[in-house]
Amino acid sequence: MVSISQLSFGYGKQVLFENLNLNLLPGHIYGLLGKNGAGKSTLLKNIAGLVFPQEGSCTVNGWVAGKRQPAFLQELFFVPEEVYLPAVTTVQFLKATAHFYPRFDTEQFNAMLAEFDVQPNEVLTRLSYGQQKKVMIAFGLATNTSLLIMDEPTNGLDIPSKTQFRKIMASALTDERCFIISTHQVRDLNNLIDTLLVLHNRQIVVAKELDEIADRVSFVTLPAGSTDYLYAEEGMAGLNAMVPNTTGTYSKVDMELLFNAIISNNQELINLLK
C-alpha cells in the first residue's frame, strides 16, 4: 500500500526526516503521533505527493507519490487540517467533484451527513468550521479510495461529534482500505486506531499494532513511591505506569502515557517496542 524507503526531507536547513522507512498495509487505521513541529503534516504531504523527498522514495500502490498521476489520485483522498471550501451547497460540491473518484458512494455520503447532523442544502461557506470539517470527513470516506489521509480531523469538532467521528471511521474501514490519522489529541484516537506510529527525532520510532504493544508492555497502577517501572506518571490512585509484560496478561494501551514516555526519550521502552 504505502512504501517509504530511506526518505529524507526538510525545509532549508531544518531536517525533518533522515533515512525514514515505513510500510503501511490495507485493513488498518494508523494513528500518527508526534510533538508539534515533528513533521507529521509534512510526512502526510510526502505520502500524498504534495511535497517531494530530497532523498529516498515514497510510493502508494506502486505509484510514485510525487508524480501525482491520475491512477494515483483517484485512489487517495487527503483531508487537511485547515479546510477551505467554495461558496456552493453540499449537493453542488458533490456534483462537481465526486466523479473524480470511481467508487464514490452518494448514499453513503448522505448517510454520514445525516449522522453528523449536517444539512445538505446549506452553502458550505456559511457552515461553522466544525460543520465544514464534517463535510470533508464524510466526503473523504464516501470516495472509497484505498488510502484516506486525515490531518488533525477532530480539530473543530465538539465532544459528541468526536464520538460520531470514531464510530463512522470504524464502520467505513474495509480490508482493502488504509486510513492514516495524524493528531496531537491522543485521546481522540482511543478505541479507533489499531496501529500506532510515533514520529520522533526524525524517525518513526514506534510502528506497532496496539495488541503487539500490549503483548510487550503492561499498563498498571502502582503504589506511590514505587520505582520498578519503565515509565510512570502520578495519578489519582498512585502511579500510572508501564512495566514489561512478563506474564502475558493483557492490559489496555494508554496511548497518552506511552507517547509521553517516548518523547521523553525513554530508550529502554523504545528498544522494547522495536
Rank of each mutant, 00 (worst) to 15 (best):
Y129I: 13
G49C: 11
L157H: 06
V51F: 09
Y11I: 09
M236C: 12
L44H: 07
Q203V: 09
L50Y: 13
I29R: 13
P102F: 02
M112N: 11
L124M: 15
E82D: 15
I180K: 03
D151C: 11
D211P: 00
L94I: 06
F72S: 00
S182K: 04
A96V: 03
Q108P: 00
E233Y: 02
L210M: 03
P153M: 07
L141F: 02
T42F: 05
N61C: 05
G39P: 08
V79M: 12
S3P: 00
T174A: 04
P26W: 01
F9A: 08
L239H: 06
D117E: 13
V88T: 14
T42M: 12
S171N: 15
N46G: 02
A172R: 12
F17T: 13
V253F: 02
N245H: 03
A38N: 11
I180M: 10
G140Q: 09
T59A: 05
I4E: 00
L147D: 08
G27L: 03
G31Y: 03
G12W: 05
V64A: 08
E152V: 11
E107R: 15
N121G: 12
L173C: 11
N144G: 04
T89H: 12
F219Q: 01
F93V: 10
C178V: 01
Q119K: 15
T154M: 03
I4G: 00
F219W: 04
R202I: 09
K134G: 07
H184Y: 12
T125Y: 07
T90D: 06
G248M: 07
I193H: 06
V60P: 00
L148E: 07
E268T: 15
G235V: 03
S182H: 10
A241D: 03
N110G: 06
C178A: 13
G12D: 09
A172F: 12
G56C: 04
N266S: 14
P80L: 14
T183V: 10
D228Y: 03
S161H: 07
G10W: 05
I149S: 02
L141Q: 03
V2Q: 05
S171M: 11
Y101P: 01
Q69C: 01
A114M: 12
F72A: 01
K208G: 01
I213P: 08
L257F: 02
E81H: 14
Q108L: 13
S171Q: 15
E152M: 11
E234H: 08
G225V: 04
M150I: 08
I213C: 01
A138F: 08
Y229E: 02
M150N: 09
W63A: 04
Y84G: 08
V51G: 06
Q92L: 11
